[in-house]
C-alpha cells in the first residue's frame, strides 16, 4: 500500500530556530502511525508542519499532492483533520455548534455525520446544547475528535489525546479511535506519551529525539526493542 502521507527530509522552523532537522515519516493508507519521544523532541512540530502551521522545508506529500505552500485552511479542506494540543475546542460555543464547525468544509448537510458522531459519543448527544467549555476534559477530547471526524477526513492527526485524562477515560477514547479507524477507513497520525497503549494500536512507530528520527519500524518491532522498552515503556 502506498503511504497516504509522506514526509521526506522535512525541516521545520520557529523563526530562525530549526526544530526539525530533516525527518522522514510515513503513514500508510488506512494505517496508524505513532510518534514517540520526550517533551520538546519535535513531535508536535511534525504535526504542525503537516498542517502548515509552521514554516518547513523538504517534501510533505498527502494523497499525491504537495502540502507545502498551502494554507492551514486549504490543507484542512483537502481532508487532513488535526486535533491540536489542548484540543482546540471553541469553548464559548455549544457542543452542536462545535460539530457544525467540523462539517464546515463539507457541502452536504451535516446531519447524518452528526448523528453518526452522537452514535460514537452518546454523551455528546446529551450535552449538545451545552457550552463546550462546561464539559469535562474527557468529554472535550471526545468533542474534539468528533469535530475532526465531521470533516470526513482521510487523515486524522491527533496530538496527545490522552493528555490530562484519567487512565480509564484514556482507554475508552483509544478504543473508540480504533473502532472509528476501522469503520470510517481513516488513517491516523498520532503523537502520544502513553507509549504502551499507542504501540498496541499503531502499526508503525517513529522515535523522535531533538528533531531527528532516531528509530523507526513496525510498532511491534519497536515495542520489542529492549532500549525503547527501557526508556519509554518502563519495563
Amino acid at each position: 500500500m502506498a503511504p497516504i502521507l509522506h514526509l521526506h527530509a522535512v525541516k521545520a522552523f520557529y523563526g530562525a530556530f530549526e526544530a526539525l532537522h530533516g525527518i522522514d515519516v510515513a503513514v500508510e493508507d488506512g494505517g496508524m502511525t505513532v510518534l514517540l519521544g520526550a517533551n520538546g523532541a519535535g513531535k508536535t512540530t511534525t504535526l504542525r508542519a503537516v498542517c502548515g502551521m509552521v514554516r518547513s522545508e523538504g517534501a510533505i506529500v498527502f494523497a499525491g499532492e504537495a502540502l507545502q505552500r498551502r494554507s492551514t485552511e486549504e490543507i484542512a479542506a483537502m481532508g487532513v483533520a488535526h486535533v491540536p494540543e489542548g484540543r482546540g475546542t471553541f469553548v464559548g460555543l455549544t457542543v452542536e455548534e462545535n460539530l457544525r464547525l467540523g462539517g464546515y468544509t463539507r457541502a452536504s448537510k451535516p446531519h447524518d455525520a452528526m448523528a453518526r458522531m452522537y452514535g460514537y459519543f452518546p454523551i455528546l448527544a446529551d450535552r449538545r446544547r451545552q457550552q463546550a467549555g462546561a464539559l469535562s476534559g474527557g468529554e472535550q477530547q471526545m468533542l474534539a475528535i468528533a469535530r475532526a471526524l465531521m470533516m470526513a477526513p482521510r487523515l486524522l492527526v491527533l496530538d496527545e489525546p490522552s493528555f490530562g485524562l484519567a487512565p480509564r477515560v484514556v482507554e475508552a477514547i483509544f478504543a473508540i479511535i480504533d473502532r472509528i479507524r476501522r469503520e470510517q477507513r481513516v488513517s491516523v497520525l498520532l503523537v502520544e506519551q502513553n507509549a504502551s497503549l499507542a504501540l498496541e494500536l499503531a502499526d508503525h512507530a517513529y522515535l523522535i529525539e531533538t528533531g531527528y528520527v532516531v528509530a523507526s519500524g513496525s510498532a511491534k518491532a519497536l515495542a520489542d526493542d529492549p532500549q525503547i522498552r527501557r526508556s519509554y515503556l518502563g519495563y
Binding site: 502551521m53 494554507s71 485552511e73 479542506a77 471553541f90 464547525l101 464546515y104 470533516m151
Partner: peptide
C-alpha cells in the same frame, strides 16, 4: 457560525478549514 469561531479561536478555526 464560522465568523464566531474565527473570532474566538482563529487557530482552531483554520484547522476546521475556515478562512479566517
Amino acid at each position: 457560525l464560522a465568523m464566531r469561531a474565527a473570532a474566538q479561536n482563529p487557530a482552531s478555526a483554520r484547522l476546521c478549514g475556515i478562512r479566517v
